[in-house]
Structures are given as C-alpha cells and as structure tokens.
Design a protein around this nucleic acid. Sequence first.
DNA 1: CTTAGATTTCAGAAAAGACAGAAATAACGG
DNA 2: CCGTTATTTCTGTCTTTTCTGAAATCTAAG
Lengths: 173, 173
Amino acid sequence: MKLTPTMHRCVLHWGEMASRWGVSRSVAQIHALLFMAPSPLTADEIAATLNIARSNVSVSIKELQAWDLVGVTHQLGDRRDYFQARKDIWEVLTMIMDGRKKREIDPTVQMLRECSADAKKDHDTPEQVKQRISDMLEFLEEVSGWYDQIRAMPRPTLLKLMRMGTKVAKVVT
Amino acid sequence: MKLTPTMHRCVLHWGEMASRWGVSRSVAQIHALLFMAPSPLTADEIAATLNIARSNVSVSIKELQAWDLVGVTHQLGDRRDYFQARKDIWEVLTMIMDGRKKREIDPTVQMLRECSADAKKDHDTPEQVKQRISDMLEFLEEVSGWYDQIRAMPRPTLLKLMRMGTKVAKVVT
DNA sequence: CTTAGATTTCAGAAAAGACAGAAATAACGG
DNA sequence: CCGTTATTTCTGTCTTTTCTGAAATCTAAG
C-alpha cells in the first residue's frame, strides 16, 4: 500500500511517540497505518508498506490484539488475514486506558494490599511509613473504583458531562 | 538509611513497575524511597541505601524534579542537598498526569494540527483519511481542554464529585 | 496424503537505554 | 586564592529491548 505524504508523516510521528507510549516503534507504526487505512490490510502489505520484517508484523499485531485495538477479517476465497483497527476514536482511548490501568495500576494495588497486611506484623517499620503506604492504597482503590463506575456509564451521558466542563461543580454546592 | 522489610519490598516493587511506568528502575526506586522516608535524604544516603552509583542518583533526581515530584531542602551549616518527595498522594497523581499529558499527548496534538493543515494541499490523500485525522485531532483537543478545566477545579469539589460516582449522571437527565 | 501458502516461533544481531566510575565543575570556608 | 567537599557531566560497559531471517508449524485445497 502506497503512503501519501500526510499518511507517511503520521506513521513516522506515531513511531517516534512509541517509546513514550510504552510500546515498540513497530507496534505504534502499524497501529497508525491500520487506523488510517481505508480498508483492511494483510500482514504482507503492512510489512512492505512500513519496510519491516514479516515476523515483526506478526508479533506486533498480536500485541495490538491484546490491547483490543485491532481485529481480523477475511475475504471470500482468500486464506490470508486482513487486519483492521478500531476506528472509533473514543473506543480507542477507552481500550488504551483500560490496558494501562490493568498493567500500571492493578499490580501495584495488589502489592500494596499484601504490603499493608504484612506491615502489621512488621514492628521495625515506623508508624508514619505504614500510614503512608495504607493512604496510598486507599487512594488508589478509590480512584480505581471511580474509574470503573465512570467506565460503565453510557457514552452519551459521559459526553454531556464532559461538555458541561466546570459546570458540573454546581451539583455539589 | 536502613530499610525495614516492608520498605524494602515497596522499593523493589516500584523498581519492577518502572519500565511499565516509563521511567528507569533507579528513578522509580528513588521515588519510592523518598516518598516513604520520614525525613529528607542526601544523595549519598540514597546511593548507599539503594546500592546504586552516586552519579546515577544525580540524574535520577533531576528527572524526578522535572516531574515536580521531588524538591530540595537544606540543613543549617550543611551544604549538602537534602531531597524530599511530595507526600500528598493526590498531588503526586496530579503531577504524574500533567507530566504524561505534556509528554504523550501535547506533541501529538501539535503534530496533528500541522498535518491537518498540510493535508488541505495534499490531493493524493483520500478524503476519508483526512477526515479520520481531523476527527482524532478534534477529539484530543476536546479531551485535553476538559482535562485542563477539571484540573483547575478546587480539590474538595473534585473529591465530592468523585464520591458521587455514577450519581453525577442525574445532572444531565 | 501431499503440497503450497500463510502464520508463528525462535535464536541471534542490532539498537537503545541504563548504569558505574572517572573526570570536570561548582560552591564554600578559610 | 587554595583546598575541600558536593554535585554534575561524560564515556564506556553492561543490560534490556527490538527486530530480522530462517526454520517450524499450521491450514486448507487438491
């Protein structure tokens, strides 16, 4: 697939942001390509377009599937996989936030729970330190629970709330 | 500074989460240590406690300062720097979110703006692709602006809103 | 069952990143 | 100024991550 200058630029930028986003360059570039592509692409097309190894496409696509950002389709009489990315930008953001919470927050909450429990038996640790740990645990659990609630709200409601901006504050006066 | 078993465990866990959080292990470990430490520590103490090179502490602290998570204090008659971390867990989260937005979102918004503008002259790019790019730009700008508004709200108000959970939805019925 | 195309796995090369230790710089007291 | 101590910068090494190319596996058709 031939990239137009604009698409080319986007793909490169995605690749450059990759390390900040916590994925490899290939993963980010493939995602950019699939997000923009008007129709689903085969792994070979992706490899050829981005000039990366075919095997690399395979593992990168696997990661994008783990993030639930890319899916497979097929064409009649063609055994190859055709990949396409989620196009709804709101859903894309949601998937990324879910994934990040799972990878970056949940393990730490888990660990803080254990730590907080063990700390009771640990008489060397100053009370102040234990307190800080349990404060952080409580805070993370609260934010985490809040996220799950918001996450479950229907999208139109969320959109309205967002568009209200600061005005929502009036509710709690 | 001697670490108690509980503190030791937290420091190690922070270090293990580092790569997922997008910082180096040293940065995460130092942050864990300073967050828990009852009193400010010198760079030498940090290096000794965590068994890392003194120079490494220097650059890592610089990064934590760039995130606005660590500050310097001094003791009378002592020219060494004493470092201490932000202890307010809410502020910590805020600083991290601000930093991430600045590093992970803002450059892309900037780039999409340029891309969207250039796309007008680029007649090769399909209309559909241009549309997707400008949709994403619009979406990111909206979310970005919303974040800034929320960010500016006083903390007690935000806390109340959070604790309301799904009930805020009633406002927009 | 065989074959050809499609995909995945794997081992090692290449690149990027983190770190230690040495050298350089800066800050201060005398 | 000079020496001492704190801090930063720099350079090379080591570790980790990413990526490639080859081999292995899988799949469906004939």
